[in-house]
Computed example of a mutant assay.
Amino acid sequence: MLEMREHIVREKWIDIETFKIIRDKLRWCYRIEGVNHLQKCRHVVQQYRDSTRGIGWGKNGRHRDQHGPKVQSLD
């Protein structure tokens, strides 16, 4: 039980740090691309949206795999 909880905590910290890295990439892309950010940063926005799915601790402490299937965009 303790090993499983430690594993979940480690995975959540990894997800949170990955989210922070992608967030910084998105900020950089917006700043560099300026008015063209809607077209040039679209792939980073998609990564950002995917990385926010199931992140954080939440009230019920569910693991990210228990939040339901990821929805693929039709782009």
Rank of each mutant, 00 (worst) to 15 (best):
M1D: 15
M1V: 15
M1F: 14
L2K: 08
L2R: 10
E3T: 12
E3D: 14
E3I: 04
M4Y: 10
R5I: 07
R5S: 07
E6K: 15
H7F: 07
H7E: 08
I8L: 14
V9M: 08
R10D: 11
R10K: 14
R10H: 12
R10F: 10
E11Y: 10
E11H: 14
E11C: 13
K12Q: 11
W13L: 10
I14W: 09
I14E: 09
I14G: 01
D15V: 00
D15E: 05
D15M: 04
D15K: 06
D15I: 02
I16T: 14
I16R: 11
I16L: 09
E17G: 07
E17K: 15
E17A: 12
F19Y: 12
F19Q: 07
I21W: 00
I21T: 15
I22E: 02
I22S: 00
I22D: 00
R23C: 08
R23W: 03
R23F: 10
D24N: 14
L26F: 03
L26T: 01
L26H: 06
R27D: 15
R27G: 13
W28H: 14
C29P: 01
Y30M: 11
Y30P: 00
Y30W: 10
R31N: 04
R31C: 02
R31E: 09
R31A: 03
R31Y: 04
I32K: 15
I32W: 09
I32N: 06
E33C: 11
V35P: 08
N36P: 01
N36Q: 11
N36W: 07
N36K: 14
H37D: 02
Q39V: 05
K40E: 13
C41F: 00
R42P: 07
R42Y: 08
H43A: 11
H43C: 04
V44F: 02
V44N: 01
V44E: 04
V44H: 05
V45I: 06
V45K: 08
V45G: 03
V45H: 09
Q46H: 04
Q46S: 05
Q47K: 12
Q47H: 03
Y48D: 04
Y48I: 05
Y48L: 12
Y48S: 03
Y48W: 08
D50M: 03
D50L: 09
D50T: 06
D50I: 06
D50W: 06
S51K: 01
T52P: 00
T52A: 10
T52D: 10
R53N: 10
G54R: 03
G54S: 02
I55Y: 03
I55C: 04
I55K: 02
G56I: 01
G56P: 05
G58A: 03
G58Q: 05
K59Q: 12
K59N: 11
N60H: 10
G61P: 06
R62G: 01
H63K: 12
R64G: 02
R64F: 09
R64Q: 06
D65C: 12
D65F: 15
D65G: 15
Q66K: 13
H67W: 13
H67A: 06
G68H: 01
G68W: 00
G68C: 00
P69T: 04
K70D: 03
K70M: 12
K70A: 08
K70P: 07
K70Q: 13
V71N: 02
Q72L: 02
Q72N: 02
Q72F: 00
Q72P: 00
S73V: 07
S73Q: 14
S73I: 11
L74D: 09
L74G: 03
L74Y: 06
L74R: 13
D75A: 12
D75C: 08
